[in-house]
């Protein structure tokens, strides 16, 4: 179904009466002055990679060099020169600016103890020590030298690991090595899920 110009004009009483008067019915002036790219004025461009899925779309991050948002990201959009996405982004990628500039973003470690109903603020040092401590304890507690048939297995089934899609090959190699050294057998990756 295609609507030609004649039909379209019929749809709008505005236009049809304008026709009757032989004019367009409105003044093309005043026109608009050249619009300035205020948002990106003096902004520094940095390329980056989307942190969400395993596709790894290229980004341009615009960082303000002056004004109230100095040194903060003011816009994040797809990088047209990037071979993977050629400038495009999905809904999640297009919202990346909110990931950076967001009042609701957590900036401190929050810890909820077992059976507790509230979070407490902790330091990063405390959190990293806790993680290391618990990995070691769980691993030692669940470590098996031999399976039920007496075969040497040297494994733990008490921990599993899931890698992030944003990890690259080298990072995955490091993580995989560490986990196998600990004796994990359940090693999974988000890109396979």
């Amino acid at each position: 179904m295609q609507i030609n110009r004649r039909n379209f004009l019929k749809f709008s009483a505005v236009a049809s009466s304008a026709l009757a008067f032989g004019g367009l019915g409105f003044n093309l002036k005043p026109t608009v002055a050249k619009a300035e790219l205020l948002q990106l004025k003096d902004a520094k461009e940095t390329t980056s990679i989307c942190c969400y899925c395993s596709l790894g779309c290229g980004l341009i991050v615009h960082t303000a060099q002056s004004g109230p948002n100095k040194d903060r990201a003011v816009n994040i959009e797809g990088d047209p020169d990037h071979p993977i996405n050629e400038g495009s982004l999905c809904a999640k990628g297009a919202s990346l600016w909110q990931l950076v500039e967001n009042d609701d973003r957590f900036t401190k470690v929050l810890y909820r103890a077992p059976n507790s109903d509230k979070f407490e603020e902790k330091t990063w040092d405390w959190a990293l020590d806790q993680i290391a401590r618990r990995v070691k304890d769980t691993r030692d507690l669940t470590f098996e030298d031999k399976n039920a048939m007496g075969q040497v297995v040297n494994r733990t089934n008490g921990i599993c690991h899931t890698g992030s899609a944003a990890l690259d090959t080298e990072e995955n190699w490091l993580i995989s090595s560490l986990m196998r050294t600990l004796g994990l057998t359940y090693i999974e990756h988000q890109a396979r899920i």
Binding site: F11, V14, S17, A18, F21, G25
Partner: peptide, 18 residues
């Protein structure tokens, strides 16, 4: 677009405004 009288008047005077 069910144009009101006011809008119809707008069209009527538009050529004069030009």
């Amino acid at each position: 677009p069910k144009l009101s009288r006011k809008a119809a008047l707008a069209k009527a005077i538009a050529p004069a405004r030009q």
